[in-house]
């Protein structure tokens, strides 16, 4: 299985309404794409993402998502600037559970464990 990672800029996301953004994410994930968004979703958007995921789950093809928000550590000044501009600095990793097994936070890093159907002969190389 090929692994497709799409990086989505904050400019692309800014032009979408909240519903458009959630539908865009779910649409991509259902095509087996892992997205790295150049912004964090706010908690309400995250809840909407989970809710939409639950509505879209079907027993055969789509079992859900894994996602992780990586907040940008910023100063109070940055936070105020972000609040005024509405821009949420950080990253979000989101993808289908059939590809992402887990996303875990280490002391200095974030690890994403992906499932790849690599044939046994290739694994040995």
């Amino acid at each position: 299985m090929d692994l497709q990672l799409d990086f989505v800029s904050s400019e692309t996301l800014e032009s979408k309404t909240k519903i458009e953004k959630i539908n865009f994410i779910i649409g991509k994930i259902k095509e087996n794409v892992i997205l790295i968004l150049e912004e964090t979703l706010d908690p309400i958007e995250e809840a909407e993402l989970i809710e939409t995921t639950m509505r879209e789950i079907d027993t055969e093809n789509f079992h859900g998502i894994e996602f992780y928000r990586i907040d940008h550590e910023s100063t109070l000044r940055d936070k105020i600037a972000g609040y005024i501009s509405g821009r949420k600095t950080g990253l979000t990793i989101v993808g289908p559970t059939r590809l992402i097994e887990a996303i875990k936070r280490g002391p200095d890093y974030i690890s994403m464990f992906a499932k790849l159907d690599i044939p046994k002969s290739k694994k040995k190389k």
Binding site: T59, H63, G64, T97
Partner: peptide, 8 residues
Amino acid sequence: GIATQVDY
């Protein structure tokens, strides 16, 4: 319980 995935 809240979950992001449900696999039968």
